[in-house]
């Protein structure tokens, strides 16, 4: 069933790209970036999945013979990636706040003083 995760992650990435390419509102573009991030995170964390594996923690009394772990590395990578995504979002929000104050609009088609 891990195929569903993979497919969903690529679908989320495509959806995020669609949002970024088509939506004119800067906040919606930011949401598109977020969707791309979530899709990527889902992909990374799914890569480490083993059917039948348990959480990679040596909890006393919880480990029974024959148990095995899922891959812990992608989980750590996802953690990193989530923090990065959150920081990116904060930064873009800061930019948008200032742009709204300066240009008086959130419409991306009007924010084009640099062109040509």
């Amino acid at each position: 069933m891990i195929l569903v995760n993979y497919a969903a992650s690529f679908f989320l990435i495509a959806l995020g790209l669609y949002c970024m390419a088509v939506k004119k509102n800067l906040i919606k573009i930011l949401i598109g970036m977020g969707l791309c991030d979530y899709g990527t995170n889902l992909l990374v964390v799914s890569v480490g999945f083993n059917p039948g594996g348990t959480a990679p923690i040596f909890t006393a009394g919880e480990i029974h013979p024959g148990m095995f772990f899922v891959d812990p590395v992608p989980q750590a990578l996802t953690l990193t990636s989530i923090v990065i995504g959150a920081c990116t979002t904060a930064m873009v929000l800061g930019l948008i706040i200032r742009i709204k104050a300066k240009y008086g609009t959130l419409d991306s088609t009007e924010i084009r003083r640099l062109r040509g």
Binding site: I2, Y6, A7, F10, I13, A14, L17, F68, D71
Partner: peptide
Amino acid sequence: ILCIGLAAAIRMAGSAPTYDGRSTDVSVL
């Protein structure tokens, strides 16, 4: 992008993983 992603996803889900952890019995460990 979606189609190639899906094809890669099918390949990723279908290929035998290099690591499946089954050989590591954590209770013994």
